[in-house]
Design a protein around this nucleic acid. Structure first.
Lengths: 242, 242
DNA sequence: ACAAAAGTGTTAGATTTACACCCATGA
DNA sequence: TCATGGGTGTAAATCTAACACTTTTGT
């Protein structure tokens, strides 16, 4: 083992060195775009045209431009593909196995995003883009299955602690819709009364005094997410932690 | 807004394109190396020699080689700097603001690592490398303060749910040492009896039937971490989830 | 004998889970 | 009037938090 008193390498954090030699790796972002429809969590995928992955499904991603922040690249992909801005986006993990991409060394930063499927300009009739039920996705191109799994797991953990599910629903929704969403994402059955109690106790719902329409049973009350109360809550939490 | 039926860009995930043009970004790893000593959580830092950050402290990191996996780069940094192999390592977040590094565009993948300070070959007398109490770190070079904060927060969350603290302790330790570690990392005061109950109920400690030595009070029993039981537990958990 | 930390159970409070009936609407 | 899901409260069980005295060692 080398001793450390003598090991003092030049280093990008400590010395100004030429980094030209290291510009041999490309960086991309890949977005796991989640939507909720027909009581299922879905993910937006595109058919790859690479020979090696002909007809396999892949995530939506792109190379990061030299003068572009990582998040901006992810938002760019989202805007291009879904027509949506101001969506929920979270970085999850960076995947960089040497041989993960046939075009060369490509390190990819994985994000997941939560969008309202109805608001997007994608329709399932489009040729290339399809919404897939997350639970039924089988083979994927590259290491995208691994990326999807990591993002799905992160979403599950996030949802258990934070009210992010609203991003997947329309502005107005019933408690049943919200519960269906939790059940679909967490893959569990929840007790209706306990769920309602818990959600209500968060104090993040505004009663719209409106009802569902056109349902063949007693209509449910409609609510919207109280973004203001949520922000106030977040701020307090940070304040107490500091 | 562009319509999506007509927007079908070539893309690194879907088409074979030249990525030479994109080799303009360097990739590095930065390691937040945590140790536990004198009842404090400490982080290993090095003085930067870059003009811009003269005498500021920075994390230990390096450029990722073209033929090297990301984790391998992180393990390389760890081995070079601490002389340690087989250490706990976890990827946390990737930082890539356009202007975060004066040498050009450098995207860095942040890891944190938990090591036993006694086992490392670093001594505080070394010129460049110093162990800093995490709570007392002030200014740092680059965006390293932000990286440290992200890693520390992740460590706190991890420790609440998973038994990773053992990586910071010597092979043999007392329950008091373990509690001191939890209190230092989580920045809370814990009830001794409740702590012992909870730790014992995890079933991850092996009673060594040995005692502390040379303490000016009643000596404590010594335990070691039951790695086998831990792995069995992890496996079961994964099994149930799938 | 004294100082200092080790070791050890019980109780109250809070949280979580389980569970069943009436209600409003459309067909 | 029937089928369907909406809406509501309570009790048991579990988990968490609070708390004090005796023991062992070195000085």
């Amino acid at each position: 083992m080398q001793t450390l008193n003598t090991y003092k390498p030049k280093n990008i954090n400590t010395h100004l060195i030429e980094i030209q030699d290291y510009f041999k790796i490309a960086i991309s972002v890949d977005c796991v775009i989640f939507g909720f429809d027909e009581n299922e969590l879905k993910v937006l995928l595109i058919k790859s045209d690479l020979d090696q992955y002909k007809s396999k499904w892949s995530l939506l991603g792109d190379i990061v431009h030299t003068d572009e922040n990582l998040e901006d690249a992810a938002y760019r992909v989202l805007l291009n593909r879904t027509g949506l801005q101001d969506v929920y986006l979270e970085q999850v993990h960076t995947f960089g196995k040497v041989c993960r991409h046939p075009a060369g060394r490509v390190v990819t930063i994985a994000y997941y995003s939560l969008i309202n499927i109805q608001h997007s300009t994608i329709r399932n009739m489009d040729n290339e883009l399809h919404w897939h039920p997350v639970k039924k996705v089988k083979q994927m191109a590259f290491d995208h299955r691994e990326i999807l799994d990591a993002c799905y797991q992160r979403l599950q953990e996030k949802l258990k602690e934070h009210p992010v599910g609203f991003n997947l629903l329309p502005k107005k929704f019933s408690l049943r819709e919200l519960q269906n969403l939790y059940e679909a994402i967490l893959d569990v059955k929840l007790d209706r009364r306990n769920f309602r109690k818990k959600i209500m106790s968060m104090g993040l719902l505004i009663d719209l005094n409106e009802m569902e329409d056109d349902v063949p049973h007693r209509p449910a009350k409609l609510y919207k997410f109280d973004a203001e109360a949520f922000e106030k809550k977040e701020k307090n939490l940070l304040g107490l932690e500091s």
